[in-house]
Design a protein around this nucleic acid. Structure first.
Length: 634
DNA sequence: GTAGGGTTAG
Protein backbone atom coordinates (compact mmCIF):
# COMPACT_ATOMS: atom_id res chain seq x y z
CA UNK A 1 0.00 0.00 0.00
CA UNK A 2 2.76 2.40 0.90
CA UNK A 3 4.95 3.63 -1.82
CA UNK A 4 8.31 1.83 -1.73
CA UNK A 5 10.07 5.17 -1.96
CA UNK A 6 8.89 6.07 1.50
CA UNK A 7 10.86 4.24 4.12
CA UNK A 8 9.13 2.70 7.09
CA UNK A 9 11.41 4.63 9.43
CA UNK A 10 9.93 7.86 8.17
CA UNK A 11 6.39 6.56 8.12
CA UNK A 12 5.21 4.12 10.73
CA UNK A 13 2.84 1.44 9.43
CA UNK A 14 -0.64 2.79 9.67
CA UNK A 15 -2.87 0.91 7.31
CA UNK A 16 -4.42 -1.30 9.98
CA UNK A 17 -4.82 1.24 12.69
CA UNK A 18 -8.37 2.23 13.58
CA UNK A 19 -9.21 5.82 12.73
CA UNK A 20 -11.98 8.19 13.65
CA UNK A 21 -14.41 9.62 11.14
CA UNK A 22 -13.02 7.46 8.37
CA UNK A 23 -15.45 6.63 5.61
CA UNK A 24 -16.04 2.92 5.24
CA UNK A 25 -14.98 1.07 2.12
CA UNK A 26 -11.72 0.69 0.23
CA UNK A 27 -9.26 3.55 0.18
CA UNK A 28 -9.31 5.31 -3.17
CA UNK A 29 -6.15 5.02 -5.20
CA UNK A 30 -4.34 8.34 -5.38
CA UNK A 31 -5.06 9.87 -8.74
CA UNK A 32 -2.15 11.39 -10.57
CA UNK A 33 -3.19 14.94 -9.79
CA UNK A 34 -4.53 14.41 -6.28
CA UNK A 35 -5.24 17.77 -4.60
CA UNK A 36 -3.12 18.33 -1.55
CA UNK A 37 -6.03 18.70 0.83
CA UNK A 38 -7.81 15.50 -0.07
CA UNK A 39 -7.45 13.14 2.87
CA UNK A 40 -9.66 12.26 5.79
CA UNK A 41 -7.74 9.45 7.47
CA UNK A 42 -4.11 8.80 8.36
CA UNK A 43 -3.87 6.13 5.70
CA UNK A 44 -5.17 8.48 3.01
CA UNK A 45 -2.67 11.05 4.26
CA UNK A 46 0.04 8.47 3.86
CA UNK A 47 -0.95 7.77 0.28
CA UNK A 48 -0.90 11.44 -0.45
CA UNK A 49 2.44 11.76 1.29
CA UNK A 50 4.06 9.09 -0.83
CA UNK A 51 2.47 10.57 -3.89
CA UNK A 52 4.05 13.94 -3.10
CA UNK A 53 7.42 12.34 -2.68
CA UNK A 54 7.07 10.41 -5.96
CA UNK A 55 6.07 13.47 -7.88
CA UNK A 56 8.80 15.54 -6.27
CA UNK A 57 6.48 18.10 -4.72
CA UNK A 58 7.36 19.64 -1.36
CA UNK A 59 5.71 18.38 1.83
CA UNK A 60 4.80 21.96 2.74
CA UNK A 61 1.87 21.81 0.33
CA UNK A 62 0.07 19.64 2.91
CA UNK A 63 -2.48 21.56 4.95
CA UNK A 64 -1.05 21.11 8.41
CA UNK A 65 -4.22 21.86 10.34
CA UNK A 66 -5.84 19.05 8.43
CA UNK A 67 -2.91 16.80 9.33
CA UNK A 68 -3.47 17.62 12.99
CA UNK A 69 -7.22 17.06 12.71
CA UNK A 70 -6.83 13.68 11.07
CA UNK A 71 -4.06 12.36 13.29
CA UNK A 72 -4.64 13.94 16.70
CA UNK A 73 -6.99 11.34 18.17
CA UNK A 74 -6.22 8.36 15.98
CA UNK A 75 -3.64 5.81 17.04
CA UNK A 76 -0.47 6.85 18.85
CA UNK A 77 1.40 5.96 15.69
CA UNK A 78 -0.71 8.38 13.65
CA UNK A 79 0.05 11.04 16.24
CA UNK A 80 3.80 10.47 15.90
CA UNK A 81 3.40 10.44 12.16
CA UNK A 82 1.81 13.88 12.25
CA UNK A 83 4.70 15.08 14.42
CA UNK A 84 7.18 13.90 11.83
CA UNK A 85 5.34 15.79 9.13
CA UNK A 86 5.27 18.90 11.32
CA UNK A 87 9.00 18.67 11.95
CA UNK A 88 9.75 18.53 8.28
CA UNK A 89 7.15 20.81 6.81
CA UNK A 90 6.14 23.40 9.35
CA UNK A 91 7.59 26.83 9.73
CA UNK A 92 6.14 27.31 13.18
CA UNK A 93 6.71 25.55 16.47
CA UNK A 94 4.94 22.26 16.93
CA UNK A 95 3.17 23.54 20.04
CA UNK A 96 1.46 26.22 18.00
CA UNK A 97 0.09 23.66 15.54
CA UNK A 98 -1.29 21.39 18.26
CA UNK A 99 -2.66 24.36 20.19
CA UNK A 100 -4.61 25.45 17.19
CA UNK A 101 -6.22 22.06 16.87
CA UNK A 102 -6.78 21.90 20.63
CA UNK A 103 -8.70 25.15 20.36
CA UNK A 104 -10.92 23.88 17.59
CA UNK A 105 -11.71 20.74 19.61
CA UNK A 106 -12.40 22.78 22.74
CA UNK A 107 -14.75 25.01 20.73
CA UNK A 108 -16.49 22.07 19.07
CA UNK A 109 -19.54 20.18 20.22
CA UNK A 110 -17.21 17.52 21.70
CA UNK A 111 -14.87 19.35 24.06
CA UNK A 112 -13.91 16.01 25.65
CA UNK A 113 -11.82 15.42 22.53
CA UNK A 114 -9.71 18.40 23.57
CA UNK A 115 -9.00 16.70 26.88
CA UNK A 116 -7.97 13.53 25.05
CA UNK A 117 -5.56 15.49 22.88
CA UNK A 118 -4.19 17.29 25.91
CA UNK A 119 -3.52 13.94 27.60
CA UNK A 120 -1.62 12.86 24.51
CA UNK A 121 0.38 16.09 24.45
CA UNK A 122 1.31 15.62 28.10
CA UNK A 123 2.49 12.07 27.46
CA UNK A 124 4.74 13.33 24.69
CA UNK A 125 7.70 15.69 24.98
CA UNK A 126 5.81 18.56 23.33
CA UNK A 127 6.10 21.80 25.24
CA UNK A 128 2.95 23.26 26.79
CA UNK A 129 2.46 27.04 26.83
CA UNK A 130 -0.13 29.48 28.13
CA UNK A 131 -2.25 29.00 25.03
CA UNK A 132 -2.37 25.24 25.51
CA UNK A 133 -3.60 25.65 29.04
CA UNK A 134 -6.20 28.26 28.20
CA UNK A 135 -7.73 25.97 25.54
CA UNK A 136 -7.82 23.03 27.93
CA UNK A 137 -9.46 25.24 30.53
CA UNK A 138 -12.08 26.23 27.97
CA UNK A 139 -12.88 22.54 27.48
CA UNK A 140 -12.99 22.02 31.27
CA UNK A 141 -15.48 24.90 31.59
CA UNK A 142 -17.75 23.47 28.93
CA UNK A 143 -17.64 20.03 30.55
CA UNK A 144 -17.80 21.30 34.14
CA UNK A 145 -14.70 19.19 34.71
CA UNK A 146 -13.58 20.82 37.97
CA UNK A 147 -11.04 18.20 39.12
CA UNK A 148 -9.19 18.40 35.81
CA UNK A 149 -9.56 22.17 35.83
CA UNK A 150 -7.91 22.24 39.25
CA UNK A 151 -5.08 20.11 37.93
CA UNK A 152 -4.59 22.52 35.04
CA UNK A 153 -4.64 25.39 37.51
CA UNK A 154 -1.86 23.56 39.39
CA UNK A 155 0.07 23.33 36.16
CA UNK A 156 -0.35 27.05 35.60
CA UNK A 157 1.38 27.63 38.96
CA UNK A 158 3.99 24.95 38.44
CA UNK A 159 5.02 26.23 35.03
CA UNK A 160 5.31 29.76 36.35
CA UNK A 161 2.42 31.23 34.37
CA UNK A 162 0.74 32.71 37.47
CA UNK A 163 1.29 36.29 36.39
CA UNK A 164 -0.28 35.80 32.95
CA UNK A 165 -3.52 37.76 33.30
CA UNK A 166 -5.10 36.22 30.27
CA UNK A 167 -4.58 32.74 31.64
CA UNK A 168 -5.65 33.68 35.16
CA UNK A 169 -8.88 35.07 33.79
CA UNK A 170 -9.46 31.77 32.04
CA UNK A 171 -8.82 29.90 35.29
CA UNK A 172 -11.22 32.24 37.07
CA UNK A 173 -13.85 31.69 34.42
CA UNK A 174 -13.39 27.93 34.67
CA UNK A 175 -14.13 27.87 38.41
CA UNK A 176 -16.95 30.39 38.21
CA UNK A 177 -18.72 28.84 35.24
CA UNK A 178 -18.54 25.43 36.92
CA UNK A 179 -20.44 26.91 39.87
CA UNK A 180 -17.35 26.98 42.15
CA UNK A 181 -18.04 30.56 43.20
CA UNK A 182 -16.22 30.24 46.53
CA UNK A 183 -12.99 29.22 44.85
CA UNK A 184 -13.52 31.88 42.19
CA UNK A 185 -14.00 34.53 44.84
CA UNK A 186 -10.82 33.51 46.70
CA UNK A 187 -8.88 33.59 43.48
CA UNK A 188 -10.38 36.93 42.48
CA UNK A 189 -9.53 38.46 45.86
CA UNK A 190 -5.89 37.44 45.70
CA UNK A 191 -5.28 38.23 42.05
CA UNK A 192 -2.36 40.69 41.95
CA UNK A 193 -3.69 42.40 38.81
CA UNK A 194 -7.18 42.47 37.35
CA UNK A 195 -8.65 43.96 34.25
CA UNK A 196 -12.17 44.70 33.09
CA UNK A 197 -12.51 41.11 31.87
CA UNK A 198 -11.74 39.80 35.36
CA UNK A 199 -14.57 41.88 36.81
CA UNK A 200 -16.96 40.98 34.02
CA UNK A 201 -16.39 37.27 34.58
CA UNK A 202 -17.25 37.65 38.26
CA UNK A 203 -20.33 39.77 37.57
CA UNK A 204 -21.67 37.42 34.93
CA UNK A 205 -21.23 34.31 37.01
CA UNK A 206 -22.79 35.95 40.08
CA UNK A 207 -25.87 36.78 38.02
CA UNK A 208 -25.98 33.18 36.77
CA UNK A 209 -26.29 31.84 40.32
CA UNK A 210 -28.79 34.55 41.26
CA UNK A 211 -26.37 36.56 43.45
CA UNK A 212 -27.59 39.87 42.07
CA UNK A 213 -26.59 41.89 45.12
CA UNK A 214 -23.00 40.72 44.90
CA UNK A 215 -23.02 41.28 41.14
CA UNK A 216 -24.21 44.83 41.74
CA UNK A 217 -21.54 45.43 44.41
CA UNK A 218 -18.84 44.24 42.04
CA UNK A 219 -20.26 46.41 39.27
CA UNK A 220 -20.33 49.46 41.53
CA UNK A 221 -16.81 48.94 42.77
CA UNK A 222 -15.01 48.15 39.51
CA UNK A 223 -12.53 50.78 38.38
CA UNK A 224 -13.79 50.99 34.81
CA UNK A 225 -16.75 49.47 33.00
CA UNK A 226 -17.07 48.29 29.44
CA UNK A 227 -20.29 47.82 27.50
CA UNK A 228 -20.02 44.16 28.47
CA UNK A 229 -20.07 45.04 32.17
CA UNK A 230 -23.34 46.93 31.73
CA UNK A 231 -24.80 44.26 29.52
CA UNK A 232 -23.88 41.46 31.91
CA UNK A 233 -25.72 43.14 34.77
CA UNK A 234 -28.73 44.11 32.65
CA UNK A 235 -28.99 40.55 31.33
CA UNK A 236 -28.68 39.30 34.90
CA UNK A 237 -31.66 41.36 36.03
CA UNK A 238 -33.65 40.06 33.08
CA UNK A 239 -32.64 36.50 33.92
CA UNK A 240 -33.84 36.72 37.50
CA UNK A 241 -37.11 38.32 36.43
CA UNK A 242 -36.41 41.83 37.50
CA UNK A 243 -37.10 43.63 34.22
CA UNK A 244 -37.75 46.99 35.91
CA UNK A 245 -34.27 47.01 37.39
CA UNK A 246 -32.88 45.97 34.00
CA UNK A 247 -34.54 48.89 32.28
CA UNK A 248 -33.53 51.28 35.03
CA UNK A 249 -29.92 50.22 34.56
CA UNK A 250 -30.26 50.54 30.80
CA UNK A 251 -31.31 54.15 31.22
CA UNK A 252 -28.32 54.74 33.53
CA UNK A 253 -26.10 53.22 30.90
CA UNK A 254 -27.43 55.51 28.19
CA UNK A 255 -26.89 58.47 30.51
CA UNK A 256 -23.30 57.31 30.99
CA UNK A 257 -22.88 57.57 27.21
CA UNK A 258 -22.40 53.88 26.48
CA UNK A 259 -23.56 52.55 23.12
CA UNK A 260 -25.62 49.34 23.33
CA UNK A 261 -24.41 46.45 21.20
CA UNK A 262 -26.41 43.46 19.91
CA UNK A 263 -26.26 41.63 23.20
CA UNK A 264 -27.37 44.69 25.16
CA UNK A 265 -30.24 45.09 22.73
CA UNK A 266 -31.30 41.48 23.23
CA UNK A 267 -31.27 41.88 27.01
CA UNK A 268 -33.23 45.14 26.99
CA UNK A 269 -35.79 43.80 24.52
CA UNK A 270 -36.29 40.77 26.74
CA UNK A 271 -36.97 43.12 29.65
CA UNK A 272 -39.48 45.03 27.49
CA UNK A 273 -41.16 41.76 26.59
CA UNK A 274 -41.46 40.81 30.23
CA UNK A 275 -42.85 44.20 31.23
CA UNK A 276 -44.95 44.83 28.12
CA UNK A 277 -42.97 48.05 27.65
CA UNK A 278 -43.87 48.62 24.02
CA UNK A 279 -42.62 52.20 23.78
CA UNK A 280 -39.10 51.39 24.87
CA UNK A 281 -39.18 48.22 22.78
CA UNK A 282 -39.99 50.26 19.70
CA UNK A 283 -37.24 52.77 20.42
CA UNK A 284 -34.68 50.00 20.88
CA UNK A 285 -35.93 48.41 17.66
CA UNK A 286 -35.30 51.69 15.82
CA UNK A 287 -31.82 52.01 17.30
CA UNK A 288 -31.08 48.39 16.46
CA UNK A 289 -32.03 48.91 12.80
CA UNK A 290 -29.87 52.04 12.64
CA UNK A 291 -26.93 49.98 13.83
CA UNK A 292 -27.58 47.27 11.27
CA UNK A 293 -28.47 44.69 13.91
CA UNK A 294 -31.39 43.39 11.85
CA UNK A 295 -29.06 40.81 10.34
CA UNK A 296 -28.56 39.32 13.78
CA UNK A 297 -30.86 36.36 14.21
CA UNK A 298 -31.04 36.57 18.00
CA UNK A 299 -31.88 40.24 17.89
CA UNK A 300 -34.74 39.45 15.48
CA UNK A 301 -35.95 36.53 17.58
CA UNK A 302 -36.04 38.71 20.66
CA UNK A 303 -37.82 41.46 18.72
CA UNK A 304 -40.46 38.94 17.65
CA UNK A 305 -40.91 37.83 21.23
CA UNK A 306 -41.10 41.41 22.46
CA UNK A 307 -43.78 42.41 19.95
CA UNK A 308 -45.77 39.26 20.66
CA UNK A 309 -45.70 39.86 24.38
CA UNK A 310 -46.65 43.49 23.88
CA UNK A 311 -49.68 42.37 21.89
CA UNK A 312 -48.43 43.43 18.45
CA UNK A 313 -48.68 40.22 16.50
CA UNK A 314 -48.64 41.97 13.11
CA UNK A 315 -45.36 43.76 13.79
CA UNK A 316 -43.87 40.50 15.07
CA UNK A 317 -44.94 38.95 11.81
CA UNK A 318 -43.28 41.74 9.84
CA UNK A 319 -40.00 41.19 11.66
CA UNK A 320 -40.31 37.46 11.05
CA UNK A 321 -41.09 37.92 7.35
CA UNK A 322 -38.18 40.31 6.97
CA UNK A 323 -35.60 37.88 8.32
CA UNK A 324 -33.16 36.57 5.74
CA UNK A 325 -32.23 33.58 7.85
CA UNK A 326 -34.52 32.09 10.49
CA UNK A 327 -33.93 29.48 13.14
CA UNK A 328 -36.14 27.05 14.99
CA UNK A 329 -36.34 29.71 17.69
CA UNK A 330 -37.88 32.21 15.25
CA UNK A 331 -40.52 29.70 14.21
CA UNK A 332 -41.22 28.54 17.75
CA UNK A 333 -41.61 32.12 18.96
CA UNK A 334 -44.15 32.80 16.21
CA UNK A 335 -46.03 29.57 16.89
CA UNK A 336 -46.12 30.21 20.63
CA UNK A 337 -47.13 33.81 19.97
CA UNK A 338 -50.10 32.84 17.83
CA UNK A 339 -51.12 30.34 20.50
CA UNK A 340 -50.95 33.05 23.16
CA UNK A 341 -53.16 35.28 21.03
CA UNK A 342 -55.70 32.55 20.39
CA UNK A 343 -54.82 32.09 16.73
CA UNK A 344 -54.64 28.32 16.84
CA UNK A 345 -55.13 27.75 13.13
CA UNK A 346 -52.28 30.11 12.23
CA UNK A 347 -50.02 28.39 14.76
CA UNK A 348 -50.69 25.04 13.13
CA UNK A 349 -50.23 26.56 9.69
CA UNK A 350 -46.86 28.00 10.74
CA UNK A 351 -45.83 24.59 12.01
CA UNK A 352 -46.48 22.94 8.69
CA UNK A 353 -44.64 25.73 6.85
CA UNK A 354 -41.77 25.28 9.28
CA UNK A 355 -41.40 21.56 8.67
CA UNK A 356 -41.82 22.05 4.92
CA UNK A 357 -38.95 24.51 5.08
CA UNK A 358 -36.86 21.70 6.55
CA UNK A 359 -36.67 22.89 10.16
CA UNK A 360 -36.65 20.32 12.96
CA UNK A 361 -39.05 21.34 15.72
CA UNK A 362 -37.77 21.14 19.28
CA UNK A 363 -39.42 20.73 22.68
CA UNK A 364 -40.32 24.43 22.84
CA UNK A 365 -42.01 24.29 19.45
CA UNK A 366 -44.30 21.60 20.79
CA UNK A 367 -45.12 23.57 23.93
CA UNK A 368 -46.38 26.32 21.62
CA UNK A 369 -48.33 23.92 19.44
CA UNK A 370 -49.97 22.18 22.39
CA UNK A 371 -50.84 25.58 23.87
CA UNK A 372 -52.45 26.52 20.58
CA UNK A 373 -54.52 23.34 20.70
CA UNK A 374 -55.57 23.71 24.32
CA UNK A 375 -56.44 27.40 23.95
CA UNK A 376 -58.62 26.61 20.95
CA UNK A 377 -60.06 23.32 22.16
CA UNK A 378 -58.43 21.41 19.30
CA UNK A 379 -58.56 18.10 21.15
CA UNK A 380 -57.71 15.65 18.39
CA UNK A 381 -54.97 17.83 16.90
CA UNK A 382 -53.44 18.12 20.35
CA UNK A 383 -53.46 14.37 20.86
CA UNK A 384 -51.87 13.91 17.46
CA UNK A 385 -49.08 16.39 18.14
CA UNK A 386 -48.38 14.84 21.52
CA UNK A 387 -48.05 11.39 19.95
CA UNK A 388 -46.03 12.75 17.06
CA UNK A 389 -43.39 14.57 19.05
CA UNK A 390 -41.70 11.41 20.33
CA UNK A 391 -42.67 9.13 17.47
CA UNK A 392 -41.73 11.36 14.54
CA UNK A 393 -39.23 13.76 16.05
CA UNK A 394 -37.62 11.82 18.88
CA UNK A 395 -38.47 14.47 21.46
CA UNK A 396 -39.41 13.07 24.89
CA UNK A 397 -42.29 14.96 26.45
CA UNK A 398 -41.31 17.09 29.42
CA UNK A 399 -43.44 18.29 32.31
CA UNK A 400 -44.63 21.32 30.27
CA UNK A 401 -45.99 19.03 27.56
CA UNK A 402 -47.82 16.90 30.09
CA UNK A 403 -49.22 20.08 31.59
CA UNK A 404 -50.56 21.15 28.20
CA UNK A 405 -52.18 17.77 27.66
CA UNK A 406 -53.88 17.83 31.05
CA UNK A 407 -55.10 21.33 30.21
CA UNK A 408 -56.37 20.18 26.83
CA UNK A 409 -58.18 17.11 28.15
CA UNK A 410 -59.68 18.72 31.19
CA UNK A 411 -60.91 21.82 29.39
CA UNK A 412 -62.54 19.51 26.87
CA UNK A 413 -64.45 17.98 29.77
CA UNK A 414 -62.54 14.71 29.79
CA UNK A 415 -61.74 15.06 33.48
CA UNK A 416 -61.46 11.35 34.21
CA UNK A 417 -59.12 10.84 31.31
CA UNK A 418 -57.09 13.86 32.38
CA UNK A 419 -56.83 12.47 35.91
CA UNK A 420 -55.80 9.09 34.56
CA UNK A 421 -53.23 10.84 32.40
CA UNK A 422 -51.76 12.61 35.43
CA UNK A 423 -51.56 9.36 37.40
CA UNK A 424 -49.77 7.58 34.57
CA UNK A 425 -47.28 10.32 33.79
CA UNK A 426 -43.69 9.09 33.88
CA UNK A 427 -42.61 12.31 35.62
CA UNK A 428 -43.80 13.60 38.98
CA UNK A 429 -46.74 15.96 38.34
CA UNK A 430 -46.06 19.52 39.50
CA UNK A 431 -48.40 22.31 40.51
CA UNK A 432 -48.90 23.40 36.89
CA UNK A 433 -50.25 19.96 36.02
CA UNK A 434 -52.63 19.76 38.99
CA UNK A 435 -53.54 23.39 38.42
CA UNK A 436 -54.61 22.52 34.87
CA UNK A 437 -56.86 19.78 36.21
CA UNK A 438 -58.29 22.21 38.75
CA UNK A 439 -59.02 24.69 35.97
CA UNK A 440 -60.88 22.03 34.04
CA UNK A 441 -62.79 21.10 37.18
CA UNK A 442 -63.87 24.74 37.49
CA UNK A 443 -65.07 24.94 33.89
CA UNK A 444 -66.98 21.69 34.19
CA UNK A 445 -68.11 22.27 37.78
CA UNK A 446 -66.63 19.07 39.18
CA UNK A 447 -66.31 19.27 42.94
CA UNK A 448 -64.77 15.81 43.10
CA UNK A 449 -61.93 16.62 40.69
CA UNK A 450 -61.44 20.05 42.20
CA UNK A 451 -60.94 18.50 45.62
CA UNK A 452 -58.58 15.90 44.22
CA UNK A 453 -56.47 18.62 42.59
CA UNK A 454 -56.36 20.79 45.71
CA UNK A 455 -55.29 17.76 47.77
CA UNK A 456 -52.05 17.76 45.77
CA UNK A 457 -51.77 21.50 45.28
CA UNK A 458 -51.96 22.23 49.00
CA UNK A 459 -48.77 20.17 49.35
CA UNK A 460 -46.97 21.33 46.20
CA UNK A 461 -47.78 25.02 46.39
CA UNK A 462 -49.54 25.61 49.71
CA UNK A 463 -49.25 29.40 49.78
CA UNK A 464 -50.70 30.10 46.34
CA UNK A 465 -54.07 31.70 46.96
CA UNK A 466 -55.29 31.18 43.39
CA UNK A 467 -56.01 27.49 43.82
CA UNK A 468 -58.14 27.90 46.94
CA UNK A 469 -60.09 30.63 45.20
CA UNK A 470 -60.86 28.37 42.26
CA UNK A 471 -62.07 25.50 44.44
CA UNK A 472 -64.10 27.95 46.43
CA UNK A 473 -65.68 29.17 43.18
CA UNK A 474 -66.63 25.61 42.36
CA UNK A 475 -68.32 25.29 45.77
CA UNK A 476 -70.06 28.62 45.25
CA UNK A 477 -71.41 27.46 41.91
CA UNK A 478 -72.98 24.51 43.69
CA UNK A 479 -74.25 26.79 46.49
CA UNK A 480 -72.15 24.90 49.02
CA UNK A 481 -71.63 27.89 51.25
CA UNK A 482 -70.30 25.95 54.24
CA UNK A 483 -67.50 24.69 52.05
CA UNK A 484 -66.84 28.21 50.77
CA UNK A 485 -66.52 29.32 54.38
CA UNK A 486 -64.31 26.31 55.15
CA UNK A 487 -61.93 27.29 52.33
CA UNK A 488 -61.76 30.80 53.69
CA UNK A 489 -60.83 29.47 57.13
CA UNK A 490 -58.31 27.09 55.60
CA UNK A 491 -56.62 29.96 53.83
CA UNK A 492 -56.54 32.02 56.99
CA UNK A 493 -55.19 29.14 59.10
CA UNK A 494 -52.46 28.39 56.60
CA UNK A 495 -51.49 32.02 56.34
CA UNK A 496 -52.27 32.18 52.61
CA UNK A 497 -52.19 35.78 51.51
CA UNK A 498 -54.24 36.99 48.59
CA UNK A 499 -52.01 38.20 45.79
CA UNK A 500 -53.10 41.73 45.03
CA UNK A 501 -54.28 42.05 41.45
CA UNK A 502 -52.72 44.86 39.45
CA UNK A 503 -53.10 46.13 35.91
CA UNK A 504 -51.04 48.60 33.97
CA UNK A 505 -51.82 50.75 30.98
CA UNK A 506 -49.17 52.79 29.19
CA UNK A 507 -49.94 56.29 27.90
CA UNK A 508 -47.30 58.34 26.12
CA UNK A 509 -44.57 56.26 27.62
CA UNK A 510 -45.87 56.60 31.17
CA UNK A 511 -47.01 53.39 32.82
CA UNK A 512 -50.10 53.83 34.98
CA UNK A 513 -50.62 51.13 37.54
CA UNK A 514 -53.88 50.19 39.18
CA UNK A 515 -54.10 47.87 42.15
CA UNK A 516 -57.40 46.21 43.01
CA UNK A 517 -59.24 48.19 45.67
CA UNK A 518 -56.55 50.84 45.99
CA UNK A 519 -57.20 54.40 45.03
CA UNK A 520 -54.01 56.38 44.91
CA UNK A 521 -54.15 57.37 41.28
CA UNK A 522 -54.27 61.18 40.95
CA UNK A 523 -57.39 60.99 38.79
CA UNK A 524 -59.19 58.45 40.93
CA UNK A 525 -62.30 60.59 41.43
CA UNK A 526 -62.89 60.99 37.74
CA UNK A 527 -62.13 57.31 37.06
CA UNK A 528 -64.80 56.23 39.56
CA UNK A 529 -67.30 58.73 38.16
CA UNK A 530 -66.72 57.51 34.60
CA UNK A 531 -67.05 53.92 35.77
CA UNK A 532 -70.46 54.66 37.29
CA UNK A 533 -71.58 56.13 33.96
CA UNK A 534 -70.29 53.11 32.11
CA UNK A 535 -71.89 50.75 34.60
CA UNK A 536 -75.30 52.29 33.86
CA UNK A 537 -74.85 51.52 30.18
CA UNK A 538 -73.62 48.01 30.95
CA UNK A 539 -76.64 47.31 33.16
CA UNK A 540 -78.87 48.64 30.46
CA UNK A 541 -77.45 45.99 28.15
CA UNK A 542 -78.08 43.25 30.67
CA UNK A 543 -74.81 43.09 32.56
CA UNK A 544 -75.24 41.31 35.87
CA UNK A 545 -72.22 41.29 38.19
CA UNK A 546 -70.83 37.81 38.75
CA UNK A 547 -69.80 37.87 42.39
CA UNK A 548 -68.76 34.21 42.56
CA UNK A 549 -65.14 35.17 42.16
CA UNK A 550 -65.18 37.30 45.29
CA UNK A 551 -63.98 35.15 48.13
CA UNK A 552 -64.75 37.41 51.02
CA UNK A 553 -67.17 37.25 53.90
CA UNK A 554 -69.57 40.00 52.88
CA UNK A 555 -72.97 40.57 51.34
CA UNK A 556 -73.64 40.78 47.61
CA UNK A 557 -73.71 44.57 47.51
CA UNK A 558 -70.28 44.74 49.09
CA UNK A 559 -69.01 42.02 46.78
CA UNK A 560 -70.16 44.08 43.81
CA UNK A 561 -68.19 47.03 45.12
CA UNK A 562 -65.10 44.79 45.29
CA UNK A 563 -65.68 43.68 41.70
CA UNK A 564 -66.02 47.27 40.55
CA UNK A 565 -62.58 48.01 41.97
CA UNK A 566 -60.88 45.22 40.01
CA UNK A 567 -57.74 46.65 38.53
CA UNK A 568 -58.48 45.88 34.88
CA UNK A 569 -61.80 47.73 35.05
CA UNK A 570 -60.10 50.81 36.45
CA UNK A 571 -57.35 50.56 33.85
CA UNK A 572 -59.87 50.34 31.01
CA UNK A 573 -61.85 53.29 32.24
CA UNK A 574 -58.67 55.31 32.57
CA UNK A 575 -57.62 54.25 29.06
CA UNK A 576 -60.99 55.24 27.63
CA UNK A 577 -61.00 58.68 29.18
CA UNK A 578 -57.37 59.44 28.39
CA UNK A 579 -57.13 58.50 24.72
CA UNK A 580 -58.93 59.69 21.59
CA UNK A 581 -61.78 57.55 20.23
CA UNK A 582 -60.61 54.56 18.23
CA UNK A 583 -57.25 54.17 20.00
CA UNK A 584 -56.66 50.58 21.08
CA UNK A 585 -56.20 50.18 24.83
CA UNK A 586 -53.43 47.83 25.93
CA UNK A 587 -53.53 46.44 29.43
CA UNK A 588 -51.25 44.10 31.31
CA UNK A 589 -52.42 42.14 34.32
CA UNK A 590 -50.50 40.01 36.80
CA UNK A 591 -53.32 37.51 37.40
CA UNK A 592 -55.87 35.94 35.13
CA UNK A 593 -58.86 38.02 34.10
CA UNK A 594 -61.80 37.08 36.29
CA UNK A 595 -65.05 35.95 34.69
CA UNK A 596 -66.86 39.13 35.67
CA UNK A 597 -64.23 41.41 34.18
CA UNK A 598 -64.16 39.26 31.07
CA UNK A 599 -67.89 39.68 30.57
CA UNK A 600 -67.73 43.40 31.32
CA UNK A 601 -64.79 44.03 28.95
CA UNK A 602 -66.58 42.31 26.11
CA UNK A 603 -69.52 44.69 26.52
CA UNK A 604 -67.28 47.72 26.99
CA UNK A 605 -65.47 46.99 23.72
CA UNK A 606 -68.83 47.21 21.98
CA UNK A 607 -70.31 50.16 23.85
CA UNK A 608 -67.17 52.28 23.51
CA UNK A 609 -66.25 50.89 20.10
CA UNK A 610 -62.70 50.22 21.19
CA UNK A 611 -60.26 47.41 20.81
CA UNK A 612 -59.10 46.36 24.26
CA UNK A 613 -56.04 44.11 24.40
CA UNK A 614 -55.38 42.48 27.75
CA UNK A 615 -52.31 40.40 28.49
CA UNK A 616 -53.06 38.31 31.55
CA UNK A 617 -50.71 35.84 33.18
CA UNK A 618 -51.76 33.14 30.72
CA UNK A 619 -52.48 34.65 27.34
CA UNK A 620 -53.90 37.57 25.41
CA UNK A 621 -57.53 38.57 25.24
CA UNK A 622 -58.45 40.88 22.42
CA UNK A 623 -61.88 42.37 23.05
CA UNK A 624 -63.56 43.82 20.00
CA UNK A 625 -67.18 44.45 19.06
CA UNK A 626 -68.57 42.60 22.07
CA UNK A 627 -66.53 39.41 21.83
CA UNK A 628 -63.10 38.18 22.84
CA UNK A 629 -60.41 36.48 20.77
CA UNK A 630 -60.28 33.67 23.32
CA UNK A 631 -63.85 32.79 22.35
CA UNK A 632 -64.53 32.53 26.07
CA UNK A 633 -62.25 29.53 26.13
CA UNK A 634 -59.71 30.52 28.71
C1' DG B 1 -3.13 30.77 17.55
C1' DT B 2 -5.48 32.76 24.09
C1' DA B 3 -10.47 35.10 28.52
C1' DG B 4 -15.85 37.92 29.55
C1' DG B 5 -23.32 38.94 27.56
C1' DG B 6 -27.61 37.07 23.98
C1' DT B 7 -33.06 34.30 21.41
C1' DT B 8 -38.41 30.60 21.76
C1' DA B 9 -41.53 27.44 27.09
C1' DG B 10 -41.61 28.98 32.43
Amino acid sequence: MLSPTVSSRQLPPLQNTPTQNTPKGPNPCPPSNLPANHFSSPSQLQQLHSHLIKSGRPLSTLPLSQVAAVCALSSPSAFSYARQIFHRAAHQPETVLWNSHLNSLASSAFPADALALFARLRRSDIAVDTFTLSFVLKACSKLSAVPLGRAVHGLVEKLGFHSDLFLLNTVLHMYASCGEMDIARLLFDKMPIRDVVTWNIMITQCTKVGEMDIARELFDSMPERSIRSWTALIAGYVQCRNPRQAIHLFHEMEAAGMRPNEVTVVAVLAACADLGALDLGRRVHGYSDQCGFQKNIRVCNTLIDMYIKCGCLEIARRVFDGMEVRSVVSWSAMIGGHAMHGHGEEALELFSRMTQAGFQPNAVTFVGLLHACSHMGLLEEGRRFFASMSRDYGISPEIEHYGCMVDLLSRAGLLEEAHEFVRNMPVEPNSVVWGALLGGARVHKSIKMGEEAIRHLSVLDPLNDGYYVVLSNIYADASRWEDVARMRRLMRDRGVKKTPGWSTVALDGVVHEFVAGESDHPQVEEIYRRWEELLEKLRHRGYVPDTSAVLLDMDDGEKEQVLYRHSEKLAVVFGLMSTPPGTPIRIMKNLRVCSDCHAALKMISEIADREIIVRDRNRFHCFRGGSCSCRDYW
